[in-house]
Design a binder for these strands. Structure first.
Lengths: 196, 196
DNA sequence: ATTATAAATGAACGAACATTCATTTATATT
DNA sequence: AATATAAATGAATGTTCGTTCATTTATAAT
């Protein structure tokens, strides 16, 4: 039997991400993807059941990539401040080296497919995130809070900064670049908020 | 000459918002909108130049609605803590009474049309937001920060909480409801972070 | 009452869409 | 070398899309 050309699958993935970020989920078509990836439209259906399956599958993959990257050099025995810092740094590093992938998942986060993607994500990460927060609360390194409140304070600012950076500007300034300076400034404030 | 039926325009707007939230920008078509709003597809083109113009125009309108609502009972002479509290409360109130509209603009914020919508927003709000922050910094009620860092800490957590509430759950919990308790808890932490 | 004019319409347009099908191609197994 | 099989394809399928057009309808102005 003929073997799968893994290069083709890779091209399909890369161009899917690139095209969705550039044109949006509307404006993204299988026929254009086929042209860009230089394969037949029919080839795409060898690798994915249909268009939704393609987006959800690739979305979940990239999502897991971000999450696993965010736990690099992270150990459960770290102090809360250290642990949060490592996670911020990891997420920021990943964004700086893979900005298009991050824009891709941010777009999916606000799409109707997000629920289906969420169901595909391995529970390991969710458990690790949750345990880290609860341990820190038990140790009185972190104010006692519902997980959602903790998460919103701890990470939403980082993602908003990344969004400002992607757009290259904000509501009031025509130019914005996220550098270590703003990162550290923000993380310091977040820690100040969350420390008891 | 025949006069415009304002009811029709209203129906077009309402169903556009509802359909985009339900089906996404992909999955939103003029022909389905026409059916839902019980008008001819051609009628839609009397009110809007094309599909993009419809989305951008309605998007900018709803956006301004949110922004103007967020400045209710807000005066520039308020203290930073008071001012931020009023803005949080207003945004939360607006969300609780118009959840679909908020989901609509949140979706647009992460779409490719956001740049075009941003250009349609009256600059008044941007100026007011900026002045409020700068005045508070001058008065030493607020840490001196780049606007983007301030904004990310001050408001991104609120929007993330609203998102958790819309989804009805978060990464780790199967159930989540945003109530005054979580709101006040979060606002308190944000103020703690931002006060010098 | 008549006229002028813009609103409103249903049907129609070609283009683009997701997906399938009949055929060819490459390779692992025999 | 021959065979079996899944990969890969270009062309075709029927459907849905955004938009336009010829016609009718409602109303303000005459």
């Amino acid at each position: 039997m003929r073997t799968r050309d893994e290069g083709k699958e890779q091209l399909i993935k890369e161009h899917s991400i690139k095209m969705i970020v550039k044109k949006g989920l509307d404006g993204f078509s299988i026929q254009n993807l086929a042209k860009a990836a230089k394969v037949s439209p029919a080839t795409i259906y060898i690798y994915y059941k249909d268009k939704e399956d393609l987006i959800v599958t690739i979305g979940a993959e990239v999502f897991e990539e971000v999450l696993s990257h965010s736990l690099k050099n992270f150990t459960p025995d770290m102090s809360f401040a250290e642990g949060l810092k490592v996670q911020w740094k990891n997420r920021a590093d990943y964004f700086m080296s893979h900005p298009v992938k991050v824009q891709f998942i941010e777009q999916l986060r606000y799409s109707q497919l997000y629920v289906k993607i969420g169901k595909k994500i391995a529970p390991d990460f969710k458990i690790a995130m949750s345990q880290f927060a609860h341990k820190a609360m038990a140790n009185k390194e972190l104010v006692k809070l519902p997980f959602e409140v903790y998460w919103s304070i701890a990470f939403a600012p980082l993602y908003q900064l990344i969004k400002f950076h992607s757009e290259g500007k904000s509501y009031v300034n025509e130019q914005f670049q996220l550098t270590d300076k703003e990162m550290n400034q923000s993380l310091k404030l977040v820690l100040k908020a969350l420390k008891p």
